[in-house]
Write a protein that binds this DNA or RNA. Structure first.
Length: 517
DNA sequence: TCTACCACGTG
DNA sequence: CCACGTGGTAG
């Protein structure tokens, strides 16, 4: 598996820094030098180029990446463990932005974990249109986003292709690359407009293979050691015995787990200490693909509701970056976000400029998705016709997200295709942008300009995205996307439109990023 | 391979 | 208490 680690992340990026606190960031990374400078790239258009994004707890991500990060996906939806949190700088304090994430295929391979390592077993299944997870605070002014870490911890991954909750749908045993998109939400920049300004950042070290159960024990141990919610599993062996006994019904002389050891690493991951070494316990070789995410395809977006606290990252919390146990962050994260006091977010979502009324689109996200969603939920599923019909009307969606959709014609290969691969966007190589190089920051490695998006076809209109006319696209690879399923129109219009809405601008985001071409 | 359930932890 | 997030295990 792991090889992937690097593989996943492979490449590039180990840079350091966490971003969170600027101050510390520097030392954060301990040994890890691996970093390649590369990653940080960002390309943004329209003034968005000044935006910098730093991955919080990068060190932890790098640790996982060194082993080959695995993220559990369940029907109900599972959070990512190292939570995806970023520090964003360079935003205009007064301008409103929508921050959202998507998770795109890192390559078009299917993996298997055997012999204690990951290897490619075949071609990836066709990815469907990806969904977008709009940060619950969106849209919010730059001052808000910059005030503290922006956490996407509540984002959940599922393997249920018919997921009604708005979670991001992934295929098990496939490698993915999470990406962050920052879209200017000003009125003048309606999503639909061609000049929508946005940028995309992706940190190679956050790439992972989706699994229904952990494959690499090292990953399990890292999760247990670092995720507060998994404390019950710390303690290693002893614990295990106890637990097992209990599970089985027996009590067992239980020993109070007095010695819960945080450490357990059973297999010992190499990386711990030195990154370099460990980095690839397994040679990335094989598949190694350079995966790079291709850009994406269209997707649906949901916005988390803004709950109070959301995620969190408190600015403060982050403190220690590297501390190893990341302890606080995830669950514990306080909310920081929401303090009313500060920015009081518009509780009622101010429907941003984008859309007046809140279209379900991004724009209003803040607003509660509830409503929005309920109105229209659409999730586009690839196979819309197959099953999804049912719920279209009401989205069961929890209050948390608003769906937006975009549709993507996605081309599996896109990555490759468009960017020649080299892929890897990441690295510096990427064609598009210059490497950034910010040493400290984690850099985003790739960004696209809005224009690109626009051309791709997506437009968000009022909140929702309109499905791009496909035309522009490369088309699906036949195999993958099953054109059959979706006929050309891949998207079924009806579904998508649900959202519709609104008007002139709204806020939908629909990035389509693919780079492509 | 994936699901359901469990015990345990956080909050 | 509860809800919910964890990984393990059984199936």
């Amino acid at each position: 598996m792991a090889n992937g680690g690097d593989a996943f992340g492979l490449a590039e990026r180990p840079d350091s820094d966490c971003v969170d606190s600027p101050k510390d960031s520097k030392h954060e990374n301990p040994p890890i030098t691996l970093s390649r400078p590369t990653s940080p790239q960002s390309t943004c258009n329209q003034g968005m180029d000044a935006i910098k994004v730093f991955l919080h707890e990068r060190e932890l991500w790098t640790k996982f990446d060194g082993v080959g990060t695995e993220m559990i996906i369940t029907k109900a939806g599972r959070r990512m463990f190292p939570g995806y949190k970023v520090k964003v700088t360079g935003l205009n304090p007064k301008t409103k932005y929508i921050l959202l994430m998507d998770v795109v295929p890192a390559d078009d391979h299917r993996y298997k974990f055997a012999d204690n390592k990951w290897s490619v077993t075949g071609k990836a299944e066709p990815a469907m249109p990806g969904r977008l997870y709009v940060h619950p605070d969106s849209p919010a002014a730059g001052a808000h986003w910059s005030r503290q870490l922006v956490s996407f911890q509540k984002l959940k991954l599922t393997n249920n292709h018919l997921d009604p909750f708005g979670h991001i749908i992934l295929n098990s045993m496939h490698k993915y690359q999470p990406r962050l998109h920052i879209v200017k939400a000003d009125e003048n920049n309606g999503f639909g407009s061609k000049n929508t300004a946005f940028c995309t950042h992706s940190f190679p070290e956050t790439a992972f293979i989706a699994v229904t159960s952990y494959q690499n024990h090292k990953i399990t141990q890292l999760k247990i050691e670092n995720n507060p919610f998994a404390k019950g599993f710390r303690g290693s062996d002893d614990m295990e015995l106890h637990r097992m006994a209990k599970l089985q019904g027996k009590d067992y002389p239980v020993v109070p787990r007095t010695a819960p050891r945080p450490r357990v690493c059973s297999s010992g991951s190499p990386y711990q200490g030195s990154p370099g070494a460990d980095r690839s316990p397994y040679p990335p070789a094989h598949y190694a693909a350079p995966h790079h995410p291709h850009l994406q395809h269209g997707q649906q977006a949901y916005q988390g509701t803004k709950r109070k606290v959301d995620d969190s990252c408190a600015p403060e919390d982050r403190q220690h970056l590297y501390k190893k146990p990341y302890a606080g962050s995830s669950p514990s994260q306080p909310e920081s976000y929401y303090h009313p006091s500060s920015y009081a977010p518009p509780p009622p979502p101010p429907p941003p400029p984008l859309s007046g009324p809140p279209p379900p689109g991004l724009s209003d996200s803040p607003y509660r998705a509830d409503m929005g969603q309920r109105q229209a939920c659409m999730f586009a599923s690839p196979e819309p016709r197959l099953e999804e019909p049912s719920w279209s009307y009401a989205c069961p969606v929890p209050p948390s997200m608003t769906p937006v959709e975009s549709y993507p014609p996605y081309s599996p290969h896109a990555p490759y295709s468009s960017s020649p691969r080299g892929s890897r966007p990441g690295g510096a190589a990427h064609h598009g942008s210059p490497p950034l190089g910010e040493p400290n920051a984690h850099a985003p490695y790739q960004t696209q300009s809005s224009e690109a998006l626009a051309r791709r076809g997506h437009h968000l209109h009022g909140g929702r995205l309109t499905p791009p006319p496909l035309r522009g696209y490369p088309r699906y690879p036949s195999a993958a996307l099953s054109p059959p399923l979706y006929p050309s129109a891949a998207l079924s219009p009806p579904l998508y439109h649900t959202l519709e809405a609104h008007g002139p601008h709204g806020g939908g985001v629909a990035p389509e990023w693919s780079s492509a071409s």
